[in-house]
């Protein structure tokens, strides 16, 4: 059988919020390593990849590798039934038709049990090569969310330009142009609230703000976001989640015709 108990159940709620608007259905792959998911959005422009390591659960039991084919909207609805301080357990059989979510209140006075039907999902798994990125930008996740929100008022796309002076986000639309420049903080120790840039080569790429805005739904999961950019390659937007894993999004750049 498969059983994974997450004491900080609110994390599962937050992971769900971070993917449900982007991905309609996906397989949650459960192995001894943990729970992972890889899925493209419906238009196949972006990819989301997440890992919840087994050591983040207590206990974690996976007798046999299984894939739970899940409709995200249905799972999100069930996750909304869990309170933020609930302990969440995910449970299924070795050849499952259903998955069970159990929500326990902290004092265990209330136990909710939701059983959800699984789907057969024939998903395409993409191999993501290790890439030498031209620039790796770390910044407060809330700052990145704010930039995406603000520039969405100006245009559909954001041009991310990174050079020795810092990083600039710019958008252009019918009403004009918006530019937001961030300088690297003097103290480079990657503490919360810092902007740090590892620059190998100056780089400038354009991305659809609609998708970056979807990615910022992961903001409640982490204080810092990392943008890894490389000429003509997809940007990797990573939120590392303390003690359990990560969620990464990849978005193909827009190419000028």
């Amino acid at each position: 059988m498969f059983e994974a108990r997450l004491v900080q159940g609110s994390l599962m709620k937050k992971f769900m919020e971070a993917i449900k608007d982007l991905v309609k259905e996906a397989n949650w792959d459960c192995t001894g390593t943990g729970i992972s998911l890889q899925a493209m959005d419906t238009s196949h422009v972006s990819l989301v990849s997440l890992l919840l390591r087994s050591d983040g659960f207590d206990p974690y039991r996976c007798d046999r590798n299984i894939s739970l084919g899940i409709n995200m909207e249905s799972m999100a609805k069930i996750m909304k039934c869990a309170s933020n301080d609930d302990v969440i357990t995910i449970r299924s059989e070795d050849h499952p038709d259903n998955v069970t979510f159990v929500f326990e209140s902290p004092n265990q006075e209330k136990v909710c049990d939701y059983e959800m039907k699984l789907m057969d999902i024939d998903s395409e798994h993409l191999g993501i090569p290790d890439t030498e990125y031209d620039a790796i930008i770390s910044m407060p996740a809330s700052e990145f969310q704010r930039i995406c929100r603000d520039l969405s008022n100006i245009g559909d796309s954001v041009k991310i330009t990174c050079n020795k002076d810092g990083v600039q986000f710019s958008a252009q639309g019918d009403t004009g142009i918006g530019k937001i420049a961030l300088k690297q903080n003097a103290v480079i120790d990657k503490e919360d609230g810092q902007v740090s840039i590892e620059l190998n080569d100056p780089v400038s790429l354009t991305f659809a703000l609609r998708y970056l805005t979807f990615f910022t739904k992961a903001t409640p999961l982490a204080s810092t976001v990392t943008l890894s950019v490389s000429a003509k390659n997809p940007v990797a937007v990573e939120y590392r989640v303390d003690d359990i894993g990560y969620i990464r999004y990849y978005l193909a750049p827009k190419i000028e015709e």
Partner: peptide, 14 residues
Amino acid sequence: CELQTLIREYFKSQ
């Protein structure tokens, strides 16, 4: 004009 490319064109299918 900017062309949006598909993610699959960058990552190989396994």
